[in-house]
């Protein structure tokens, strides 16, 4: 895969695939909240304890980060012309997203223990 494809077609495709995944996941998530009403801590943690749900949730966050990266990068490519400023913003975006991802991993690990 060339960098041109990665920053063109693949980025565009990634945004669409991640959007579809998040839409399906959110539909399911809100459906459970509305109809099963896990109102107690026990019900809530039981729901998230199952492996399929953990995988699905992990998938959701992967899709979210992927989607956000492509989206914000698109805005920066559109509007920020000076190379140094654009790279600076992209690097700070990457750092922010890595920190957020680590936080998500920490929450996951805390839930798994």
């Amino acid at each position: 895969m060339s960098w041109r494809a990665a920053s063109g077609l693949h980025a565009w495709l990634a945004q669409r695939i991640s959007a579809i995944y998040m839409a399906v996941f959110l539909f399911y998530f809100l459906g459970v909240l509305a109809f099963c009403q896990p109102n107690t801590f026990q019900a809530w943690s039981d729901w998230f304890a199952s492996t399929p749900m953990q995988l699905a949730t992990a998938g959701f966050f992967i899709a979210l980060f992927w989607h956000a990266w492509v989206g914000v990068r698109d805005v920066l490519i559109d509007y920020i012309k000076p190379f140094a400023v654009r790279m600076g913003l992209l690097v700070s975006l990457a750092i922010t997203m890595i920190l957020l991802a680590l936080w998500v991993v920490k929450v996951f690990l805390a839930g798994a223990l």
Partner: peptide, 12 residues
């Protein structure tokens, strides 16, 4: 020729 971030994919 249209591949890459600019030529085609700036279209939103």
């Amino acid at each position: 020729e249209l591949e890459g971030p600019y030529r085609l994919f700036r279209c939103h």
